[in-house]
């Protein structure tokens, strides 16, 4: 069963790391799948991949280019990245645009935790990928993948908007190749969830003056 990871009006060969996607598809195919579930899954993935809403998150220079892809010339609304949400609860992916410092790292982690599953992370620019020019600094995290799992890396300092669009399309392809039913949708039970939450609560209450307002 060949799953469709094409992006409309883009050539398959134009994408660079097809091996990764093919490997991913192969692993999925090895397990075999039910036809009905598979079809339903295709529809869900089609929907999800075409409706990825970003979190408005930016720390430095790349943020301006992130605004530029939202603006008239590059307009990522064309691909369905339309609605940039300011609340992490409603966003589908976080574009880590800019340097992440030691002080910001727990905040970023918290933002990521606040997002609803399924969620994705794009590391944009040299700083988010590896610390970039500030790698040797005493206050910079060298790579956000040390804190949160990254799905797509977009190199550049800052990346051109075209590069960002390309990276976003790669994310769409990844989402298309995934499987929502079985695997991605972990579906943990209510009880388990309660337990995890309580664990987290206890930890938080240890911290003096824990800010209840939720949003970092």
């Amino acid at each position: 069963m060949k799953r469709n990871v094409n992006i409309k009006s883009m050539k398959y060969e134009d994408f660079n790391d097809n091996e990764y996607i093919e490997q991913m598809l192969k692993e999925l195919r090895d397990n075999g799948t039910n036809v009905i579930v598979g079809c339903l899954d295709d529809v869900i993935e089609w929907g999800r991949s075409n409706s990825l809403w970003p979190l408005t998150f930016a720390t430095s220079c790349c943020g301006i280019e992130f605004m530029a892809i939202g603006a008239a010339r590059y307009d990522f609304a064309r691909f369905g990245f339309e609605v940039a949400r300011s609340s992490p609860r409603q966003a589908d992916f976080i574009m880590v645009a800019g340097t992440i410092t030691h002080k910001m790292a727990p905040v970023l982690k918290r933002l990521y935790d606040q997002m609803a599953d399924p969620k994705y992370v794009i590391a944009t620019g040299g700083c988010a990928i590896s610390g970039g020019p500030f790698k040797k600094s005493y206050h910079v995290v060298d790579g956000v993948d040390k804190i949160i799992p990254v799905d797509v890396y977009i190199p550049g300092c800052p990346p051109r908007p075209e590069a960002m669009l390309y990276g976003l399309m790669q994310l769409q392809r990844k989402v298309k190749a995934q499987r929502f039913l079985g695997g991605l949708n972990k579906g943990i039970s209510e009880k388990e969830y309660e337990r995890l939450m309580r664990e987290d609560t206890n930890k938080a209450e240890d911290l003096k003056e824990y800010d209840e307002s939720g949003l970092a």
């Binding site: 720390t59 430095s60 800019g98 340097t99 410092t101 002080k103 910001m104 905040v107 500030f134 040797k136 600094s137 005493y138 206050h139 910079v140």
Partner: peptide, 13 residues
């Protein structure tokens, strides 16, 4: 300080 990258210290090296 959420984007304090320590540029001034880096410059010294």
């Amino acid at each position: 300080g959420y984007i304090h990258r320590g540029i001034e210290k880096l410059c010294e090296t």
